[in-house]
Write a protein that binds this DNA or RNA. Structure first.
Length: 255
DNA sequence: ATGGCGCGCGCAGCGCGA
């Protein structure tokens, strides 16, 4: 089973690239973030014509998440239980015996902003939810745009980014707390090239110069981590015409 | 060098992303 995550930065703009990518990579499940449209405007027919089913939870202009799958998916949740949130950042579903969580973690803007505090509260509520979900679901995967670079090796210029949003110690601590639940960072289960990133700024020719951050992740429960055979960043998608600023991450599981 | 690019909205220029 191939599990993938991709922040598409508008599914409307990225639909041609997405369809091309689905055809080329053929993931069994792909979690999309920043679809940026209301459910009534989701391109369901085009997705179905490509052979995929779609679950989605969107809103106008901002946020929005979707899970595309070759096999039928059963809806589980569109919010963190008990966490009042009008922003569409969560979608959970059961697919092929795996409980899949798709996350678009708040960006946080800057460490002195209200949005940063919202991000930390959101991550604490997420941890509590996943803690109980892990007890009930041995085969569990948490994919998405975490907006956290877990360590200095995930940052092109760690000194310049130190303490800044996406790299601050409280955010990294929140990420480590997810790992402390028993989740594993799929990417770090394997030997990886140095300077591996999933996001590059559109400005400053950042992609060409590989000035990036690794902020999109696939976390796996122990039972799934045991069965994970590879986890890779698909940089090819970032090279495309009119690309998203994020590259997809794909994990292959032997299940 | 706090801009730089690309998105949505909506028709000018701003908020936002990361």
């Amino acid at each position: 089973m191939k599990l993938a995550t991709w922040n598409v930065n508008s599914i409307k703009v990225r639909l041609p690239q997405l369809l091309e990518w689905l055809k080329a990579r053929r993931p069994d499940v792909v979690c999309l973030q920043e679809t940026k449209l209301e459910d009534g405007r989701f391109p369901q027919q085009e997705i179905e014509a490509a052979g995929y089913q779609a679950l989605y939870s969107g809103q106008k202009t901002y946020n929005g998440v979707a899970i595309l799958s070759l096999a039928p998916a059963r809806w589980v949740a569109t919010a963190i239980p008990g966490f009042g949130d009008s922003q569409k950042r969560v979608l959970a579903a059961d697919v092929g015996g795996v409980r899949v969580f798709n996350l678009y973690v708040p960006n946080g803007q800057s460490v002195d902003s209200d949005k940063y505090h919202y991000k930390l509260k959101w991550l604490a509520a997420l941890r509590d939810w996943l803690s109980s979900e892990l007890r009930a679901n041995p085969r569990l995967a948490v994919l998405g745009d975490y907006n956290i670079a877990p360590g200095p090796e995930d940052v092109h210029d760690p000194a310049a980014w130190e303490g800044r949003v996406l790299c601050s110690e409280p955010e990294r601590e929140a990420f480590r707390e997810l790992l402390a639940l028993g989740l594993r960072d799929g990417f770090r289960l394997f030997e990886q090239p140095e300077r591996s990133y999933t996001w590059w700024d559109y400005r400053m020719q950042a992609f060409r110069r590989n000035l990036g951050l690794r902020i999109d992740h696939i976390l796996l429960s122990p039972a799934l981590a045991e069965r994970c055979r590879s986890c890779e960043i698909d940089r090819e998608a970032r090279r495309a015409e009119r690309p998203s600023d994020h590259a997809p991450v794909i994990a292959e599981l032997e299940i």
